[in-house]
Each structure stands twice: as C-alpha cells, then as structure tokens.
Amino acid sequence: MSVETTPADRQGRSRSEELKTLTILWAIFTVLGVIFALIVPHHLMGPSASNTMTEVERTFTMFSVASAPVAAVVWALAVYSLMRWRRRGAWKEGDPDGPPLRGHGMTSGIWIFLSSALCLFLLIWGLAALSKVDSAAASGATPLEIDVTGQQWVWTFSYPSQGVESDQLVLPVNRPVVFKVTSDDVIHSFWLPEMGIKVDANPGVTTSTSTVPDRLGLYHVRCAELCGLLHADMETNARVVTSDDFDTWIAGQGGHA
C-alpha cells in the first residue's frame, strides 16, 4: 500500500536536490516572515509618542526579523517532511522502518551554535536597549517630576514643583519626565501604551519610570494590573502639548511654572 520509493532509492536521490528544495522553502518562509515583521507589529503598535516607544518598536521589529529565519527553519522542515516522506495509509506490521539515524554531530553542533549566537545577539541588543531606555530621561533638560498615585479606580497626577494636582495627565513635548508611582490601596500598574512605559504602583513604596514624550497628541493611561471591580475603567487621558500650552495649563490649574 505504500507507494513510496524504497529506502535505497531515497538514498540514491541526490542530497543536493533535497537541500535545494528545503532552502527554497526556508527562503520563502523567511521572506514572508520578514515582510510580516517589518509591517505588522509597527502598524499595530501605532506611531510612537516617546523615545522609549520608538526604542520598543525598533526592538520588536528587530526581534521579529531575527526570529523569522528561525521559525522558517522549523516550518520548512515540517512542511518538507510532510511533502516528501508522508506515508499513505496506516502503518502495517512488516513495513520498512525509516533509516536508523540516531543523531548527527555536525547538525547538532551547528544548531546549538547558531541558537546560542542568536541568543547572545538578542541579549546584547536587549541590554543596549535597556540602558538606552534607562538613561533616556537623564539626558537633556531638567526632568519634569510627576507623582502618580493609583487608587481604586482612579489615577491622580500631582506636579510637586508646580503645585498642581489633576486627574488628567498633561505633558510638555520633548521634555524628559520622571514618574514616581505609588498606590493608596492595592497594586495597580501605571501604563502609557503609546509611550512604551509601565511600572507597578505598589502600596507603601514608590517606583519610578521615565520617558521623553516626543509627539503631540492625545494618548491613554491605563491600569495593567487587575485591581478589583472596576479595573477596566481605570483609565484616563494623557495629553502631550507644547511647552507653552503646558505652562498655560499649569497656570489654569492654579500652579506656578
């Protein structure tokens, strides 16, 4: 019932042909993967509103591009094996077995080496991105400090140097900002999705995060840690405005610039 060639025949078929087909499959999958990686994540994450988010999107795209050939290897092998070696019908007693291939030192070595190298590359990339993100706010102008307090289920933003408190977040564009985040009750998580920053708001301690907003517009503040009944409603707006508009807003709130 097996219409396949015998093992001897298969041995006879040129190995280079096998590798050629595989390489073509792999190349197709890789190209598709890279195209996907270059377009889709960026499209979904939307235009970035801060230097942090730019870095995040760049890293995401980079990782996707780097992993496309890896996934392509796995999928190419899987698809090829189905095309080439799939048995028609069920196994029966006495059917010939596959070749007794118990390992192949070269293949394993290359596999481990490549995956280690890739891992090392991702690690170095990640550490570099991390230090960039961490040092973002340290550079340039004096950072604007904002105290963020989460409580069930609202955010409060206070600008200590300006003496303003608000339930809306207003940020001047291109000025580093440091958020000191805490909570009055349970754990919340302060998330600015368009700016790529998030840090938990823990009761009893203060955590901090920072970024430089670089795009005018209306964005969101969300809570990313289940914090009880109205967790889904714990969101507010974040507005990035020009420096002048910011001063006007501060003045309007009764603060001093």
Binding site: D147, T182, T206
Partner: peptide
C-alpha cells in the same frame, strides 16, 4: 513618612 516619594 509613608507619603514621601522615595524608596525606603
């Protein structure tokens, strides 16, 4: 004091 903004 607990309200202060620094990590104890």
């Amino acid at each position: 004091d607990p309200g202060a903004r620094s990590v104890p």
